[in-house]
């Protein structure tokens, strides 16, 4: 993996206390938390379905998908609507922090991290220790896993 300059616009959000990011071009809208209808027999990380202005969208609990600790944040939770393979999917995140343009080098994910449960969903890392932002690999997160 080579270093590259990331000068794209990112949506920065929290999962727990950690910061994560997705390119704004991937995020179609940010929706308020709403009633999610659970789906029996669905994979555990799929919270359920919402009615988004007449279209029915599956919602993924991003925290559970990344295998992060289950700390309910509650109030500030929102649903990011992303498009993947022609389908809209919702991602629950704890809080949206900002939309920022980054003009710095993103670093590859250290190999040790890629082997952790959540690390395999990381694309690259922006910034230094304290202000670290992990850019997520949407394709991996939304890939279907063989049962």
């Amino acid at each position: 993996m080579t270093e590259k300059i990331a000068s794209e616009e990112k949506v920065i959000f929290n999962l727990g206390s950690e910061k994560f990011a997705l390119g704004t071009e991937k995020v179609k809208s940010i929706e308020e938390m709403q009633d999610i209808i659970p789906v029996p027999l669905a994979p555990p990380y799929v919270t359920g379905l919402i009615n988004l202005r007449g279209a029915i969208v599956a919602v993924v609990d991003l925290r559970q998908r990344l295998g992060l600790a289950d700390i309910q944040n509650g109030r500030d939770m929102v649903i990011l609507i992303v498009e993947h393979n022609g389908e809209d999917v919702g991602l629950i995140v704890d809080r949206v922090l900002s939309v920022e343009i980054f003009e710095m080098k993103s670093q590859p994910v250290p190999e040790a991290v890629t082997k952790t449960k959540s690390g395999r969903f990381y694309l690259s890392i922006l910034g230094a220790k304290d202000e670290k932002v992990v850019i997520l690999n949407l394709d991996k997160i939304l890939a279907l896993e063989e049962k």
Partner: peptide, 27 residues
């Protein structure tokens, strides 16, 4: 009948989804 998201397509328990009178998704 609307098609079910591919995340939920794996087992065939549901053939699709619709919107209820209250406006909620309904399997």
């Amino acid at each position: 009948v609307k098609p079910l998201s591919r995340f939920l397509n794996a087992d065939k328990t549901f053939s699709g989804v619709a919107i209820s009178r209250e406006g909620h998704p309904m399997l």
